[in-house]
């Protein structure tokens, strides 16, 4: 009888520790988020069809108390049409803005080729032909000769993600009792494909 009680006690002891162990093996919210991004990357690539996949970039960001920009430089090596596929399902908080330019930020004369507000929790694609037409139109208005304009093609594109300022919430750290600013993060995926015709 005593042995049975002792075994039951030990079984209870073991089971409780096992539950604790299992809780600690559960994924953290951030790890779950990273797993979701893997699926979003796949969806982002699938949206490139029938263009041939060429590369992708996942841009992680943290919301701050001021606006700021993350810029991606994209190389275009041939005079063919490219498709850009964006997947912003990894943005769970305030939406961001996407702008695409012909030059990097340091050039005030750069041309805004494309702009989209409210990017977050959605997906969209665009092709370079429309942006090239816009660039050529701007060049014509600036007086560039038609012969030159007709020879133009993109060699680089600059994709700017404008991350909006947020009011950071304050939480009390249960361990230290001190005030800690809550960090919110997001991620947007860009995949690029080219026409192989």
């Amino acid at each position: 009888m005593k042995n049975i009680i002792l075994i039951l006690f030990l079984l209870f002891f073991v089971t409780e520790n096992n539950c604790v162990a299992q809780k600690n093996y559960e994924l953290s919210p951030y790890q779950e988020f990273l797993l979701e991004l893997k699926d979003y990357r796949k969806e982002c690539r699938n949206a490139l069809k029938p263009y041939r996949y060429d590369g992708a970039r996942t841009t992680h960001f943290t919301y701050k108390e001021y606006n700021y920009i993350k810029e991606i430089e994209m190389g275009i090596v041939q005079n063919t049409e490219y498709r850009l596929s964006f997947n912003s399902n990894g943005i769970k908080y305030d939406p961001i803005k996407v702008q695409i330019y012909d030059k990097p930020r340091k050039y005030k004369s750069r041309v805004l080729l494309y702009e989209k507000d409210g990017v977050g929790g959605n997906e969209f694609t665009l092709e370079t032909s429309a942006m090239l037409d816009k660039l050529k139109e701007v060049k014509r208005e600036k007086g560039v000769e038609e012969e030159i304009v007709n020879m133009m093609r993109f060699k680089k594109l600059y994709i700017d993600y404008i991350i909006p300022a947020v009011d950071r919430e304050i939480e009390v750290d249960p361990e230290t009792g001190g005030e800690v600013k809550v960090v919110t993060k997001g991620a947007i995926i860009l995949a690029v494909g080219y026409s192989n015709l």
Binding site: R52, R57, I69, K70, V183, L190, V192
Partner: peptide
């Protein structure tokens, strides 16, 4: 997080580190 809080704000819009997407060897 503490490092993020320590960053000084110099402009309203601040460039963070840039990324790039190169073409693939296949292309």
């Amino acid at each position: 997080e503490q490092q993020d809080d320590d960053q000084e704000v110099e402009e309203e819009l601040i460039d963070e580190d840039s990324q790039f997407i190169p073409p693939s060897p296949l292309q």
